[in-house]
Design a protein around this nucleic acid. Structure first.
Length: 591
RNA sequence: GGUCCGGUAGCUCAGUUGGAUAGAGCAUCAGCCUUCUAAGCUGAGGGUCAUUGGUUCGAAUCCAAUCCGGAUCACCA
C-alpha cells in the first residue's frame, strides 16, 4: 500500500479509536507538506471540526499523538500549524521501501484485474497523410492504453479506418482525371502523400469550377452542387456502393498505396493496434439496430421514410439515423460498431480517442445507446482532446495548410542530430547507434511536447519556433536518465552493505517522490490523462538533477552514503524509464 | 440564438474531492565546469488567477451574472 493509503487508513483507525466515530478517506484531505514546514504529509483538520465538535488544533494534537504512538513504523513526528497536522514519515519506512523496491521494474504498477478495455484511436482517412493533429491522437491513445495496462486492465487497441465515402472518392477522381497513370513508385513519393496530393488537387479544381460557374451567373449554392467534378464524384460513390468493378479496383489500388505509407509512419512513431476496423466493412452495421429501435419506439419514421431520434428532451436536437433512401449515416455505423466491439471482445469499457469537435456526436451516440438499453451503454467513454492549431488558425488538409506528421518527426530528429553533434559526447557511436539516438531524442521531444498538456485543452504549434530541448521536455528527462546510467556503470553495489538510517533533504525529497509513482499511475488512469505522468516524471528528473549537482554519488562521504545514493539513483532510473514508457518515449543509455 | 469547452507571469503551461505566502519551463538578468554527462545547477526580477457579486473559518478552485476566445447544432464523415 502507498504511504498515502497507509496514512488514510491509520488516520481513520485513529479517529475511530479516539472519538468513536467512523470516517472515510473522503472526509479529510491529505496533502504533501509544503517545503517550508517540517514533515512529509499533512492532514487538514478543518473538515473534521464539525462532526467532532472540537477545535482543529485539539483534534490535530490528539491525532498526531495517537498516530506517532501507535504507528511508529510509519510516523516519527508531528507538528500542528493553524489546523494543519504535519506528519514526518519514519526514515525506516523509506529505507525499507528503498531496499525492497530499488530494482523492481514493476514498481508502481498494479497486477492484472481482469477488467477489459478497448481504446480506439488514430482513425485515419485514406485520402491524406497523417498530420500533427493525428499525432496528438496517436500519442494520447497509445499512452492511455499503456497507463490502463499499468493499472491492471487488459487493453485492446483498435483503429477504425475511414476508407470509404465521398471524401475518399474525391482523391480517386482527381487521380483518374489528372494523374496520367502516375504512381507512388513512378514519382518516388510515399503512398499516403501521393494520394493526399490528389485530394488537394480535387479541391483546387472544384474551387475553379465553382468560380467559373458563378462568373457565368449561377448562384453560389447551386454552383457548389452543380460543379461537374462534384457530380462525377457523387456518381463514383454510387458506383462504389454498387460494387462497380473498375471503381472497386481503383479504390483498392489507391487505398493500398495509402496503407503502405501509413505502415511506415505508424512503425516510425510507435503506434500499433490489436484490431483494425474498416468503415467499408462496418458502414452497413447498425441498420438492424435501427430496426430494433423502431420496434422499441426509440426511433420514429418521418413521412419521407427517413428515421430519426428526438433528443430534445435531453437538451439536444432531433438526429437522423437513417436516410430516406435507407442508407446509413455516420452515427448509424458507430451504433453498429459499438455493438460489434462488445460482441467480439466482451469489453467492460470502450474508450474513443476523438477530437473535441465531435463532443456532440459522441454525446448523441451515448444517449442513443442508453435509450436502446444496450448493456455497454454506460461504458462508452469519449476521451476528448483539443485541436492542435497553427498561429494562423486551424489546419486544413483540403487546403494543404497542415504540419505533416512525417515531416515534423524528421525535423525533430534533425534537430536532435544537430544538438548532439554540437555537444560531441557520443563521437564513438556507430552510425546506426547515432540514428537510433536521434530518433529517440527527436521523437521523444515531440511526444512529450504533445502529451505534457492536459488532453482537453487545445494547443498552438508554431512551426517558426522549434520545440525546446531544455527544461520541461523529454530530452531533459532522457539526459538525466543517461547520467544515472553512466554513474551506475562506474560504481558497484555492495552486497549486504548497510545503506544507513537517515536522509539528507534532497535524498528524502527524491525517495518521497519516487514512492508516489503508483498513486500517480492510478490517478492518470482514472483521468485518462498522460500529462499527469509527464508532469510527475519531469519533477522526478528535476529533483534528481538538483541532487546530482549537490551530492556526489561515487565520492560520497561514507560507503553507506554511497550505497544509499546508488539505490536511490537506480530506483530513479527505473521510475523514469517506466514512466516514459507509459508515454511511449524511450530513454537512451548515453546521450 | 441553444449547448459545451476554455481565459492563471511577456510566452507555453501546472495548480489534487475548496486549504498554509498561487508554482514550473521558455525568455531576461547575475553567478557556477580541474572530481560521477553543464541537454545541467544556484539565485533575481516578473501576478488585479478575465470582470463583478455571492457561498464560508478559508475561493484560482464552488454558484450567479457579464466580457473575450473556440467548438458544435448537416439526409458530410
Amino acid at each position: 500500500m502507498s504511504i498515502l493509503g497507509s496514512l488514510q487508513k491509520s488516520t481513520i483507525e485513529s479517529l475511530e479509536a479516539l472519538f468513536g466515530q467512523t470516517f472515510t478517506e473522503k472526509d479529510f484531505q491529505v496533502n504533501q507538506t509544503k517545503p517550508e514546514f517540517e514533515g512529509d504529509y499533512t492532514v487538514v483538520m478543518f473538515s473534521l471540526v464539525k462532526s467532532l465538535q472540537q477545535s482543529p488544533d485539539a483534534i490535530g494534537n490528539m491525532l498526531g499523538k495517537h498516530l506517532t504512538e501507535n504507528y511508529p513504523h510509519l510516523f516519527s513526528a508531528y507538528n500542528i500549524i493553524k489546523g494543519f497536522l504535519n506528519l514526518s514519515v519514519a526514515d525506516d519506512y523509506w529505507i525499507n521501501l528503498l531496499k525492497a523496491q530499488y530494482n523492481d521494474i514493476c514498481f508502481g504498477k498494479q497486477p492484472i484485474s481482469g477488467k477489459k478495455v478497448m481504446v480506439e484511436y488514430s482513425s485515419p482517412n485514406t485520402n491524406k497523410p497523417l498530420h500533427l493533429g493525428h499525432l496528438r491522437n496517436n500519442f494520447l491513445g497509445w499512452s492511455v492504453a499503456e497507463i490502463l495496462k499499468a493499472n491492471g486492465n487488459t487493453v485492446f487497441k483498435s483503429c477504425i479506418v475511414n476508407d470509404r465515402g465521398i471524401h475518399i472518392c474525391k482523391s480517386m477522381l482527381a487521380w483518374q482525371q489528372f494523374a496520367n497513370g502516375a504512381t507512388p513508385q513512378s514519382t518516388h513519393t510515399k503512398g499516403d502523400h501521393f494520394v493526399g496530393e490528389y485530394y488537394v488537387r480535387f479541391n483546387d479544381e472544384y474551387k475553379k469550377e465553382i468560380a467559373s460557374l458563378i462568373a457565368g451567373g449561377m448562384p453560389a449554392a447551386d454552383a457548389e452542387k452543380k460543379a461537374p467534378i462534384m457530380k462525377l464524384t457523387q456518381q463514383m460513390l454510387q458506383d462504389w456502393e454498387a460494387g462497380e468493378p473498375t471503381v472497386m479496383a481503383l479504390w483498392k489500388k489507391m487505398n493500398g498505396w495509402v496503407y503502405d505509407g501509413f505502415d511506415i509512419t505508424y512503425k516510425n512513431i510507435g503506434s500499433d493496434f490489436d484490431k483494425m476496423y474498416y468503415e467499408s466493412d462496418t458502414y452497413l452495421l447498425g441498420k438492424d439496430i435501427v430496426q430494433k429501435g423502431l420496434d422499441k419506439k426509440v426511433f420514429y419514421t418521418k413521412p419521407d421514410g427517413s428515421v430519426w431520434i428526438d433528443l430534445s428532451a435531453d437538451g439536444l436536437d432531433e438526429k437522423l439515423v437513417l436516410r430516406k433512401d435507407g442508407t446509413s449515416v455516420y452515427i448509424t455505423q458507430d451504433i453498429g460498431l459499438a455493438q460489434q466491439k462488445y460482441d467480439e471482445y466482451k469489453i467492460d469499457q470502450s474508450i474513443h480517442v476523438i477530437g473535441d469537435e465531435q463532443n456532440y456526436h459522441m454525446k448523441v451516440l451515448q444517449l442513443i445507446c442508453k435509450k436502446m438499453e444496450v448493456p455497454y451503454a454506460e461504458d462508452i467513454h469519449h476521451l476528448s482532446y483539443g485541436m492542435v492549431e497553427l498561429p494562423t488558425g486551424k489546419m486544413k488538409s483540403r487546403e494543404g495548410t497542415v504540419v505533416d506528421a512525417d515531416d515534423i518527426v524528421a525535423e525533430m530528429e534533425n534537430e536532435a542530430k544537430q544538438k548532439t553533434e554540437e555537444l560531441g559526447k557520443v563521437k564513438d557511436f556507430a552510425e546506426h547507434e547515432l540514428n537510433e539516438l536521434f530518433h529517440t531524442i527527436g521523437l521523444g521531444a515531440l511526444k512529450f511536447f504533445l502529451l505534457r498538456v492536459d488532453p482537453k485543452k487545445k494547443m498552438t504549434f508554431n512551426p517558426a519556433e522549434s520545440i525546446d530541448f531544455h527544461g520541461f521536455t523529454a530530452p531533459f528527462i532522457q539526459y538525466n536518465y543517461a547520467r544515472i546510467r553512466s554513474v551506475l556503470r562506474k560504481n558497484e553495489f555492495l552486497k549486504d552493505c548497510s545503506i544507513g538510517t537517515t536522509f539528507l533533504p534532497l535524498e528524502k525529497e527524491l525517495i518521497v517522490s519516487l514512492e508516489r509513482y503508483s498513486t500517480v499511475i492510478s490517478q492518470a488512469a482514472d483521468e485518462l490523462n498522460p500529462s499527469a505522468i509527464a508532469l510527475y516524471i519531469y519533477q522526478i528528473a528535476k529533483t534528481f538533477s538538483s541532487f546530482f549537482a549537490e551530492h556526489s554519488i561515487g565520492n560520497a562521504e561514507t560507503e553507506e552514503k554511497k550505497q544509499l545514493r546508488l539505490y536511490l539513483a537506480n530506483m530513479t532510473a527505473i521510475v523514469i524509464k517506466s514512466g516514459m514508457q507509459l508515454l511511449g518515449i524511450t530513454v537512451p543509455e548515453r546521450m
